[in-house]
Design a protein around this nucleic acid. Structure first.
Lengths: 235, 235
DNA sequence: CGCGACGTTGAACCGCATCAATTCCGGTGG
DNA sequence: CCACCGGAATTGATGCGGTTCAACGTCGCG
């Protein structure tokens, strides 16, 4: 297994994604202070594991680029994707409420993260309330996402879950634009609690009906209204 | 519909459950300060709604006594219980990240809550970092619970979900002790994503097999090992 | 007693998992 | 450049788990 590549030391003051991170509200002087913690920029290739469920937690991460899946595994080998992370997302903080990571984090495509020791983060949390506020915002956001998924899994059936997943994934893009979907059928299934075959069948169906297009890891939403209707208009 | 009863003004300094609330880490002087906010103690009867999904959020609550269900409703009438709350749980904070409650909160049995205006809470959060820390702890705890439920719903089948729910519910009690289960079949189903009938069938089965006992809203765990085995030994 | 809410039980159906080929596609080596 | 390979996706056939529909039982309460 390849060893993840330590790309460089982070430079907070020139960091291009800082406006969407937990440090977005700091002023120039404060950014200098956090620079002292020397966060590391690390790159992972698709499939590489950023941390493992049960591992002693030492770091939290900010996702700079790419997609990451957060997976919870059961003792018997079954597992479930509990979150999908995108640019700017903050993760690995499970260590703040316990010593071990409660999930595994895996790169879905080529990923770049900014790694910060939890010990430093704890200090920061106390000395810079603005940082704590931003973290809180993200935790509540993540809680909200998790609770929304609970409803998806608990109250909807397979077709609805798949459809609203696609609609959510393409939301914010103009219709017909291609958007990367760096998940294979197995991962989509693991996220939505269905099998590979079910994912495949519905996707094939919707492609035939012209609701969506797909090509080598990219999809386009061709007829969101049509898709919504197949499934029930609500949400 | 009955109007919930404003029982009294809260007296933080003598509050019996304060050790398990977000104010647990405050010293006597600080408790005096929060007393100034004059939290209200309110009582709800079974089935009464504490707040409604979509309602403008003005208050957060600490559960002093009883059980509360947090429900998320879909436009078409389907709904799902996203959390069950017990003594000491802190809820209604959705308003901190938005203006509206994202769920409804309903009393399952006779419930007593301590109600605190969100505006005051926001101030407290800044002036008393210890309070913010305690809130953070609860949010992360709740996130963890939600993500655990995601795995339950996404990866387990009905029998497993029901069994691990029962085991969790009785965890911490000595075997054979009666513990209150203030949920009817419909609510258990709504929590675990199964129908009333399925709940009933498995419970009846397990009662016949002597794994559990049940009597008017109370259950006892008679053979946890047996129950665990029916379902697969893991977790 | 009779009503209504809740729970149980049975029978039929169907959605999705499961099992099993077959196809598709990108990568590798001849 | 094509042949071949392996992993992923597709598609079909079958079976089961859990829903759905319906009937009945049970308990608490006016």
């Amino acid at each position: 297994m390849r060893v993840p590549q330590l790309q460089a030391k982070g430079h907070c003051s020139t960091c291009s994604i800082r406006p969407i991170t937990i440090f977005s509200t700091l002023n120039a002087a404060e950014v200098e202070q956090i620079q002292a913690f020397q966060p590391a920029i690390i790159r992972y290739e698709p499939g590489e594991i950023i941390y493992h469920q049960g591992m002693e937690a030492h770091y939290a991460f900010t996702l700079r680029q790419g997609f990451v899946k957060i997976v919870n595994s059961l003792a018997d080998g079954r597992s479930h994707i509990v979150q999908l992370l995108r640019d700017g997302d903050f993760f690995g903080f499970g260590g703040l409420s316990g010593v071990e990571y409660k999930h595994s984090a895996t790169a879905l495509n080529t990923v770049e993260v900014c790694r910060l020791p939890l010990a430093d983060l704890l200090k920061l949390k106390h000395t810079h309330p603005k940082v704590e506020t931003e973290m809180t915002k993200r935790w509540l956001e993540r809680l909200h996402r998790a609770e929304s998924m609970l409803v998806e899994l608990g109250a909807k059936k397979a077709a609805e879950r798949l459809a609203s997943f696609l609609l959510r994934w393409c939301a914010g893009n103009a219709p017909n634009t291609w958007v990367a979907l760096p998940l294979n059928r197995a991962e989509i299934g693991e996220l939505l609690g269905v099998t590979i075959e079910t994912v495949s069948r519905f996707f094939a169906d919707w492609k035939r009906q012209g609701f969506i297009g797909e090509s080598r890891g990219n999809i386009q939403m061709l007829d969101a209204a049509g898709l919504r209707q197949v499934v029930g208009i609500d949400e």
